[in-house]
Design a protein around this nucleic acid. Sequence first.
DNA 1: GATGAATGAGCGTTCATTCAT
DNA 2: TATGAATGAACGCTCATTCAT
Lengths: 198, 198, 198, 198
Amino acid sequence: MTVKRKGPKYDKIIDAAVSVIAEHGYHQSQISKIAREAGVADGTIYLYFKNKEDLLISLFQEKMGHFIDTTKNEIEQKHSVEDKLLTLIEMHFKQLSVDHELAIVTQLELRQTNRALRAKIGEVLMRYLDLVDEIIINGIDQKVFHPDIDIRIVRQMIFGTIDETTTSWVMNDHRYDLTALAQSVHDLLINGFRYRPS
Amino acid sequence: MTVKRKGPKYDKIIDAAVSVIAEHGYHQSQISKIAREAGVADGTIYLYFKNKEDLLISLFQEKMGHFIDTTKNEIEQKHSVEDKLLTLIEMHFKQLSVDHELAIVTQLELRQTNRALRAKIGEVLMRYLDLVDEIIINGIDQKVFHPDIDIRIVRQMIFGTIDETTTSWVMNDHRYDLTALAQSVHDLLINGFRYRPS
Amino acid sequence: MTVKRKGPKYDKIIDAAVSVIAEHGYHQSQISKIAREAGVADGTIYLYFKNKEDLLISLFQEKMGHFIDTTKNEIEQKHSVEDKLLTLIEMHFKQLSVDHELAIVTQLELRQTNRALRAKIGEVLMRYLDLVDEIIINGIDQKVFHPDIDIRIVRQMIFGTIDETTTSWVMNDHRYDLTALAQSVHDLLINGFRYRPS
Amino acid sequence: MTVKRKGPKYDKIIDAAVSVIAEHGYHQSQISKIAREAGVADGTIYLYFKNKEDLLISLFQEKMGHFIDTTKNEIEQKHSVEDKLLTLIEMHFKQLSVDHELAIVTQLELRQTNRALRAKIGEVLMRYLDLVDEIIINGIDQKVFHPDIDIRIVRQMIFGTIDETTTSWVMNDHRYDLTALAQSVHDLLINGFRYRPS
DNA sequence: GATGAATGAGCGTTCATTCAT
DNA sequence: TATGAATGAACGCTCATTCAT
């Protein structure tokens, strides 16, 4: 029996899952708890998702899919590579800043999953990393970035820095303004932290 | 009832845990499997560790403790800040390159744990981050690093980049030589990826 | 709320149940699967049957009722007791031979049901056993069967033999011609298997 | 992880399963109920059996294995084929008469199982049917049974009759003495019910 | 009449931990 | 010290049945 992948309850269940996982942690987020939060019966979840893993994957796909689409859109509005990179960072920080629950779920909780689930999550992330790669290649072409840089390493540097910055912010209970750091992160990535007295 | 924190079996159990987790994954690493690998009875593990979480924390403390001590030692041998940073990166890559099992466990498997465990892991990491901070401050003092940089961000940039680079390498089944990347990573961190034609 | 016990959908649902049970087995024959096969909605089944058990009982009553009526009719055409018994066996074998699905359902699948259901099935079978009893009494009266035989045991012998023969045939995937065995079964029942050289 | 297939608890659990199934029926015999009856924890059952199906198969193998061995032994004591057949019937009736619970379980409850389980049960029964075949062949050789009989049909006649007789006795709540019927069943099988006035 | 989305009770199995030996 | 048999709480998932439309 196949499952319905849309309808108001589909979204309601995914949002409930985000809330429950953010509040109780991944391992304390039983189907019954999510169902209760969504205001549906346990069995109803199985009308929309094949199983619990499918729900979590769908959650990530829906939320990150939207996240990536929005980011991509904004980046395309910018013309200079520097603006594009700044926008990538800003959008990342902004979108997680306005949704603390989602930030907790993506930065902390969804990482404690088994290999199979993480593989699926990796597939979704691929699209994000492609976005990063595009900017890097663009930067090289426009002679803004050094022609000899290793794209893979630069990608890991950009993503690793953004991700670590975000995770630290989440682990510090979102105590400071994450978006305010975007410009600094951007400048450090592009210029490094070497002192170059003029 | 307190537990013994040393003796030959203490180490044997920790090493068995690393092996089992690397091979079977965190969620398939039951106490009984670890005990069998270590050549002891299930109950014996509880003579040396308070519970499973304590075993995992101890594992991380022992392995990372040694990892950090060695790194610290090497860094102290270096005089220039640039050499210190390069050494930090090199040691990180080198130590995980020679122990694939440990790399899998620290980069992938031990991250799928609950909040409490990750908090403890964070405490151990603190010592590592202090090491990073020391280098940064040193760099600023010696006017090698820009005086206005935000130490916290730079720390997250360094750690985030190294960590992401290592994780990617592990997820690609250690297919390439990680240590060969140290110099590039180091240069990119310090100089950024901007093109500066002379 | 009472249910309708007739209409085209009533028969359609029963036939669908036979098909589904024969193909997927009793425990894999969910109401939704039967409804799909019958081309009706799940809820529609409950307009014609009180519940799943009622559907199964009705199935047995309809199919076996017809089975018994036909058998009874044929037997009445015969005059000698020996012919009547032979006809009973032949009709049993013939009717299940032409409907493999029904054979599977009555010989194998419908037996894996709970006590309550089997009690109901037993009631239907009663009419069949009465038919057998009639032949036996007839045989005794006509001095064809021994006057001292225990009717109950002979009935169980006749039914047990026919039933076991049929079940074996079904379990062997209807690989041989069941009807061809009727005469032998008949002779063995009446004469036993003792060797009586003349 | 493999399971222990013996020890006092192994037998205790099997006996508890027989009791619970006899009393509550197959579908109402949850593992927790069987464990409670056996005086062990639910998890203990899984130290001795792979899963619930394995427990039921083991139950059948243990009980029927013993049943068949005993029957075989007794038959070998007899010399004439007629005595052997009578002994087969007597032993069947006697062994189920002294253990009403086992009779209920084998005649009624264990038949409501899925195909996989019944296949395993069939394998055990094979040994019993081999015993029957042996007697039949012996009877033909010794010219006690008619040389032209179809062994397969006779086997089904013998087993079908014994089985149906026993099942009827169980369904009538063991209200009469089953063993008293052995001689009649035996005579009817061998001689049939035809009247042969001398 | 007919639909089919929604319900929610029920259960086999795992595994960290204990404790008698 | 060391053992390993025994424990029992916890949970994802199924499916017969209902009822608003």
